[in-house]
């Protein structure tokens, strides 16, 4: 499999009152063509900022200070705004957690999808609208013609997320970035959307970068997975490998602390300590204060993400040195 997207040493910082937050602090990640890669982390780990950095959709106070994002042979970071706009929504699409805020309330969903198509393809509005109806049918919306004429507020949450997916896929992007796409949805609706994403992936052949906090969703959807903590990737492996033998203490703690269906535990495992203040991340390994192992060197040097066991299992922890 060839690499579709390659993130190299990405640093994204936010200038805020009180200092600089290194939201993304040296992330390396490769997304092969047609693969589904999971990016897991808790709030504030930098997983969403990584996605927004790829799309170059950062807020005004955020800046990519270092690194490259190679998409095929082009570095998205240095690209002129116009060329980036051309890639956005065309070659790389994104869907968000809350579909209501991502849709414009004053246009029908059909018109919005048609516009998204027309931004990147030279077709007239009718052709765009036809494409929109076609897409709505593909994402499993019954009576797509009627639905295309409806406004976002007339649709349920699950339906809106289907519309977002339809819009994102309407240009057949090579990469779909999905930022917590099912977090706002109920379990039975989540199941529908996940199933839809799996099916559409087969149909469109897009690679997916799935950002989530839910390890269950990762296990179900992803080929490989990267775990983020305090702006860095601490572990990366194929999904089966990561769940079968997690190597980073954070990953281990995370996997142990979730309640498992049908396996009631006497007491849930707990990760001690607290997430570092984003303005005062400790030197060395950011996880050290909460780490049960506290390997030597971790108080001074940041552990690099290195192969451990196999070439595909990467861990950033000094204990394996």
């Amino acid at each position: 499999m060839s690499d579709l997207l390659r993130i190299e040493d990405l640093h994204t910082q936010f200038h805020v009152h009180g200092g600089t937050v290194k939201a993304v602090d040296g992330v390396n990640l490769t997304i092969p063509a047609r693969a589904t890669v999971g990016l897991v982390g808790e709030s504030g780990s930098g997983k969403s900022i990584t996605a927004l950095s790829i799309m170059r959709l950062l807020e005004k106070n955020g800046r990519i200070t270092q690194g490259h994002v190679w998409f095929h042979d082009r570095d998205l970071i240095g690209l002129p705004d116009e060329e980036m706009q051309d890639i956005r929504g065309n070659d790389i699409s994104m869907i968000f957690q809350e579909p209501m805020t991502a849709l414009n309330p004053v246009f029908t969903v059909g018109d919005q999808i048609a516009e998204a198509v027309r931004l990147h393809q030279k077709v007239d509005h009718q052709a765009g609208l036809n494409r929109a109806i076609e897409m709505l049918r593909l994402v499993g919306i019954s009576d797509p013609k009627r639905r295309a004429g409806q406004y976002p507020h007339e649709l349920s949450g699950g339906m809106r997320q289907r519309v977002m997916i339809a819009m994102a896929l309407s240009t057949s992007p090579e990469l779909l970035i999905a930022d917590e796409p099912t977090t706002a949805l109920d379990v039975t609706i989540q199941a529908q959307i996940l199933k839809l994403m799996r099916n559409l992936k087969g149909e469109f052949g897009s690679a997916i970068l799935l950002i989530t906090h839910d390890l269950g969703v990762v296990a179900e959807m992803c080929d490989s997975v990267a775990v983020m903590y305090a702006g860095r990737i601490v572990e990366q492996a194929t999904t089966e490998e990561l769940f079968a033998s997690p190597k980073h203490p954070y990953t281990q703690g995370l996997l142990a602390s979730i309640p498992r269906l049908g396996k009631k535990q006497e007491r849930l495992h707990v990760i001690t300590g607290s997430v570092p203040n984003p303005l005062a991340v400790p030197p060395g390994c950011a996880f050290r204060p909460r780490c049960p192992i506290k390997a030597p060197r971790s108080d001074r040097d940041i552990p690099p993400l290195t192969a451990n066991g196999s070439a595909e299992h990467l861990v950033a922890c000094w204990q394996y040195e």
């Binding site: 199933k195 269950g216 079968a244 269906l261």
Partner: peptide, 16 residues
């Protein structure tokens, strides 16, 4: 349909 954090588990899902 509850996602279970175990990729080796293959279940028959009833997606409503």
């Amino acid at each position: 349909v509850i996602p279970i954090p175990d990729p080796t588990l293959r279940r028959d899902q009833t997606v409503l």
